[in-house]
């Protein structure tokens, strides 16, 4: 879907009014009213700290949420590295939240030679992936190499990713892939 800043604000719950020509040539009233609503909401919002998901400076930010819905994210003034500052990406972190209608929300499947996506359940997707992992693993597993040395590896599945994951997930993921016998395991650090 094509999304402008204005429609985004509308979708994300801010008050949007029609554009009226102003002396600036554009209308600031939706932004002003959004800011006013936000100021009010922030008072009752829950604050949790986070670390920016972009570059590896590791800037701190504060997430404001109401009943699990993120309403704002801004720089953490107590953070010793960024002392509240954020770059343009970091300052836009809110637009990564569930408020952005472009976020993926459902597991999807594209069948061989299909021209479209099909919506599927998690249960189905995970079962089908598991079956394929087993089939590919069993078909390509090499117990011994050409020299007769034990190698116990899965030659037919590769994996890439991800520096965007948490440490705990990175550890789990490499454990899982290695338990399945993969050797073709790579990610962003190589490129």
């Amino acid at each position: 879907m094509k999304l402008t800043r204005r429609t985004f604000l509308k979708i994300s719950g801010a008050t949007a009014v029609g554009i009226a020509a102003s002396s600036l040539g554009f209308d600031l009233s939706p932004l002003e009213s959004y800011a006013a609503t936000l100021r009010k909401d922030l008072k009752s919002a829950k604050e949790t700290t986070t670390i920016c998901p972009y570059c590896a400076v590791g800037c701190g930010a504060i997430v404001h949420s109401i009943n699990g819905k993120v309403i704002n994210i801004e720089g953490d003034p107590d953070h010793v590295i960024n002392e509240g500052s954020l770059c343009s990406k970091g300052a836009s972190m809110y637009q990564l939240s569930a408020a952005n209608p472009n976020r993926l929300t459902k597991p999807m499947y594209r069948a061989p030679y299909a021209t479209e996506w099909k919506e599927v359940s998690w249960d189905w997707a995970l079962d089908e992936i598991a079956k394929r992992v087993k089939k590919s693993r069993d078909a390509s597993f090499m117990t011994k190499n050409a020299k007769g040395q034990v190698v116990n590896r899965t030659n037919g599945i590769a994996h890439v990713g991800s520096a965007a994951l948490d440490n705990e997930e990175c550890f789990m993921l490499q454990k899982l892939m290695r338990a399945w016998g993969l050797i073709y395991i790579e990610h962003q650090a190589r490129i």
Binding site: P53, S97, L104, A111, E168
Partner: peptide, 20 residues
């Protein structure tokens, strides 16, 4: 065949990351 799985973003889960 393609399976496209929707993930949570960093601040929708808990864990650690290591900076530069």
């Amino acid at each position: 065949e393609v399976f496209r799985l929707p993930a949570a973003v960093s601040f929708e889960k808990e864990g650690s990351i290591t900076n530069s």
